[in-house]
Design a protein around this nucleic acid. Sequence first.
DNA 1: TGTACATCAGTGAACGCGCGTTCACTGATGTAC
DNA 2: TGTACATCAGTGAACGCGCGTTCACTGATGTAC
Lengths: 237, 237
Amino acid sequence: MSWRKDDRRAERGYHHGNLKEALLQAALGLIAEKGAAGFTFADAARSAGVSAAAPYRHFRDRDDLLASIAQRGFEQFEAALTAAWDDGRPDTVSAFMRVGKAYLAFARNEPAFYSAMFESGVPVDSNPPLAAAGERAFGVIRIAAERLAALTPPGATRPPAMMMALHIWSLSHGVASLFGRGDAARRKLPMSPEDLLEAGVLIYLRGLGFPTERRPQPPPPPEAGERPAGPWGKVPK
Amino acid sequence: MSWRKDDRRAERGYHHGNLKEALLQAALGLIAEKGAAGFTFADAARSAGVSAAAPYRHFRDRDDLLASIAQRGFEQFEAALTAAWDDGRPDTVSAFMRVGKAYLAFARNEPAFYSAMFESGVPVDSNPPLAAAGERAFGVIRIAAERLAALTPPGATRPPAMMMALHIWSLSHGVASLFGRGDAARRKLPMSPEDLLEAGVLIYLRGLGFPTERRPQPPPPPEAGERPAGPWGKVPK
DNA sequence: TGTACATCAGTGAACGCGCGTTCACTGATGTAC
DNA sequence: TGTACATCAGTGAACGCGCGTTCACTGATGTAC
């Protein structure tokens, strides 16, 4: 037994065995199933196999539970973005693209977290730890943008990294919200959300003066009607 | 009296005086006030000054009411975007930018419609008229993108208009959702959402080969630390 | 090691409340003759 | 023009239901000695 007291306690809990964690998991399942709006405090208790009064030992009320989920969501989001960024390896541009893909992957694979973070109406401003967690997640994008901005090619104007980060965040968020959700409210799309986002970011970066072509330079089109490969090379007819 | 029968009826209604319309307005007010999640069918009836049973004469249930609001929202959204586009006057690029601004203005000025359209969980797919209304709104952006794509400068590759429209829609939606709401869940921003979106669209268009500088060509920066004017000229320090 | 006590997570019963929904009804409006 | 009837929007009472919340309680775990 090399467990310290805290570890043992966190692992087994008192009676139920870590009810707080079980409630968070139950709520996540319910949100994924019925949406952030359609889950209740009593629901979470029932789903965790516990009486309706038990959650009050761990959360002030439903909003408190929801805020905890959002907080954890931002932490996992930050971790996912950080892993995708991988400190800019193997090169800044491709790592940057990977961060965008990770944004979409998170929205698709963790719809419950995503709902709690962005669509549940949790008051971020009145919850400093939650706001800080959100800032840290955004910070990953900001740092990536700073590294990218530092690589501005000679002759091009160096853009403010904060603005770049906000643009990329907004574009990723828009694509994820409109097209990249697992189940509900998605619209038909002639291409995958990942390809849509990638093409958008590449065009954006080119607009900033970055060379983004895989091939050094695409030949000018022989006919105006034909589509030589560009950042949108994957778009179907 | 030149009223046709339908007109008179639509104007006064039977007893209450167009309760259907009053319920829609009441629900809009409640959504704006408490969010799409926190309004009930009974609430709308009460707010319209009518018994709790009355709404059943006009809407099957709460979701039906919400879908009607979303439908009307998309129609007004389409009208706002169409007006902003103004058939591409006075020139295609500036009209295009105006459409983006109209997107943000709608999200800010009509938060209740925006919530019902994009955040209320109304099942768009199982509601063909609603889906069609959404498509028509998107169609405005698509048409604008087509006109813009047709202007691709010589030497640049003409981008698929559908993809351009999806990018602009996504960026606008992301900016509006993250920063451009009237009251709730907004984050701090070092510039206005309008300026953020405008800069993003300009950079994007430049990435497609469009000339977007107001000045013919900005001089290269004398010092790397200084920021000459670009599309992000309005960004504060 | 064992006993007595303290702590505290979870119980279950209880409550008030507002929501969704139904139903027979009423009364104003529209229409046939 | 007037009367009788049909239509139908809105009423108000009623119901079952589930939620949020409280409270004294119980019993398992931790700790002092």
